[in-house]
Write a protein that binds this DNA or RNA. Structure first.
Lengths: 238, 238
DNA sequence: CCGGATCCGAATCGATACTG
DNA sequence: CAGTATCGATTCGGATCCGG
């Protein structure tokens, strides 16, 4: 099980050797939410084969990204090492980047608690954040989302204790267009992309201000430096 | 050739579906330096099978990451779309992350012009940059590295025109320890990790100030939020 | 239930050869 | 220069099984 190498002495190469294998970054994504048991990971990644999960965890441990922590008489959990946690800004940026071309969900796609939590983190704008307390339902995931003084805290919504949040938003995948700015809160309500089942509908404005991802933001360097130009002095056609 | 899906409706998932396949991010890395021909990419990725390069380029085009641009009577090049270029900060961060655990080169590892260029970009500190003009040799790659008023420009060193740069640094892979801060410029010279074949050796101090990657920088959130805690109220052992 | 290990067919990857 | 074709080696996916 020697790790598959690319044969280059380079930081990017080393990085993709550590976390570039199939499923690895999704495991890291879930572990960024918190330590997880083997079974939690399996539930959060419904289509991962168990032998692959097992291999990845082993490789991530060898790479110093993940640590295996036994709990006193309670089984064990996997958690990120400090080195693994340093991937957080990278995964948030990757999530923002991928968000922009997500389109509509494909048949069979699921939304998991951890992926939705990370999605909210990627979209969170501390500088525009409006204090509020939401309960957000997407698919069959229900999260409690508390925004307070520029800080975001996401946890699972407790099923029994009902009337706690300021607003309960039910938004099966339509929340993407709100966060992406494709629709205004009013439009989203009018087109029934989501509903506010309890609390003032105006909390939707606060939500849209707090969670937002704008389209692209490419660095507009004029595409590469000259001097590397193997292409030479030819103009692009069209 | 249907893209291999993970079955999750999530930004990170979408991102790894677009650029997570083997070799894809290394292709993007090279294209971040500038538009490249098929053959350039092949030379820059010596161990990529040509059919894989072909497949990846096709997939990256379908994903809107790469564009195929015919040159007037001069063949064609691949270049990043604006969406693809938006990966630049992510690849730079990944490069910094991987850099920290690169260790010594393995047998057969190569350093390519594009990978070294990107490595310099990942390590570049505009705020500490000292204006200078280097010629940097690593392996059989020779780059011209010009730092001027907080700006970095890297190009291939022209083999014939010799005496141009302020200093010529020859540093087969030892430059990693200098950039990583493992050694001071003086130590690097004393231990013969690199040599300054022309120009004042003090340019090495400028170089080390300008190009630097420090160890880790993990966000020190106390490891995940409570409320997600399936692990429950058990203390970690040890 | 938890934490995997094992087995096997299907898909992908790697290496080389070949072509317009 | 810019790929396609072929084929064996690996890896992945899906299912089952097993010890605590």
């Amino acid at each position: 099980m020697a790790e598959r190498r690319y044969g280059q002495y380079c930081g990017v190469t080393r990085a993709v050797e550590l976390v570039g294998e199939r499923w690895a970054l999704l495991i890291v994504r879930d572990l960024l939410v918190g330590p997880r048991r083997y079974t939690d990971l399996k539930r959060g990644l419904p289509r991962i084969p168990t032998n692959i999960l097992s291999s990845r965890l082993k490789e991530l441990q060898e790479g110093g990204v993940v640590r295996r922590v036994p709990l006193l008489s309670c089984g064990l959990v996997y958690e990120l090492t400090p080195y693994g946690r340093a991937l957080e800004p990278i995964l948030l940026a990757l999530g923002r980047w991928g968000f922009q071309t997500m389109g509509e969900p494909q048949e069979g796609d699921v939304v998991t608690s951890d992926s939705l939590t990370m999605a909210l983190r990627t979209a969170f704008r501390p500088e525009r954040a409006v204090d509020a307390d939401y309960e957000l339902h997407v698919g069959d995931v229900a999260l409690r989302v508390v925004v307070r003084s520029g800080d975001l805290r996401v946890s699972r919504a407790s099923p029994e204790a009902g009337p706690e949040a300021d607003a309960v938003i039910v938004a099966d995948t339509g929340v993407r267009r709100l966060i992406g700015g494709d629709v205004t809160p009013a439009e989203a309500l009018a087109r029934d992309l989501l509903t506010v089942v309890r609390g003032d509908e105006r909390f939707l404005g606060a939500f849209a201000a707090t969670f937002h991802i704008d389209p692209v933001t490419a660095t507009d360097t004029p595409q590469g430096s000259p001097g590397h130009g193997s292409p030479g002095p030819c103009d692009p056609a069209t």
